[in-house]
Design a protein around this nucleic acid. Sequence first.
DNA 1: GTTGATTAGTTAGCCTAGCTAAACTATACT
DNA 2: AGTATAGTTTAGCTAGGCTAACTAATCAAC
Lengths: 149, 149
Amino acid sequence: MTADARGPAIAREVADRLHSAAIALLRTARKEDEASGLSAARLSALSVVVFGGPLPLGELARAEQVSAPTMTRIVSALEELGLVVRQADTQDRRIQRVVATEAGRKKLEEGRARRVEFLRTRLAELPAEELAQLEKAAEVLGRLFRKGR
Amino acid sequence: MTADARGPAIAREVADRLHSAAIALLRTARKEDEASGLSAARLSALSVVVFGGPLPLGELARAEQVSAPTMTRIVSALEELGLVVRQADTQDRRIQRVVATEAGRKKLEEGRARRVEFLRTRLAELPAEELAQLEKAAEVLGRLFRKGR
DNA sequence: GTTGATTAGTTAGCCTAGCTAAACTATACT
DNA sequence: AGTATAGTTTAGCTAGGCTAACTAATCAAC
């Protein structure tokens, strides 16, 4: 049987299962995120700042698909928590660049570590063969979905 | 080589990659979920009702880890949208069983179909061998994470 | 069988967070 | 000078979350 003949049907099936698994995974991961003490909106914004480098508040607002006033408040909250700072642009002093602090990076990294650790303990229960299968799959998924980051 | 010798290290690596893929997947899924017009809390509750069958409001509250009053409001909102109905238990008339309507099932199924379809188009690009790997992985992940449902 | 305790759910009142539009300030551009 | 842009402030909405107080139904005990 060729891949093309079987492909579409099996892709749908795999997509379905992967989707279910992702939902379940997402659930447990969300619980770990709560431990950070940050809301989803703040955590997401912080993540963009940490990985996307210093960037103007307006750009951050667009990236997160919220209005400027909303982002002002989110950034203000993160700033009060010491996770980011505003830096006036030297070229254009209207612009406030948002930069992650060390504490901000650390906070994000801790959250990631928590989620990964949780996952790891689950995976560690698996027989070696299944773990190897997941390893290959993770590689494929990484290629498929990780482009954006 | 035994699984135990190699297990911990590889589990950590796989967990890391799986985590990254899940985040990426989560991002796109979130966008699709917004198309449903339901908030995360309502969508999640609806999902439990649809898959978990008619169940008392209190149980639903516990499942979603919120207080009873909060669930009362969420259910009321879903009821006004015509997605669920309350049914007084015939045995114990204190109990209000929450049941999904056809519209509720359909709404959830539509969202799922959107997400699965998006995933499917991505997976369809893969060579058959990699797809087969994902198939096995999906099966394993399903067993690992889907227990709660 | 009436009283008392327990349980399920709702109502009321309050807080916080995210979101928006509109008005305002400050800077930059022409 | 006049216009455009970046960000903030103000005012107000919606939604999720809580606790406390209430109603209604069940159960237990005497």
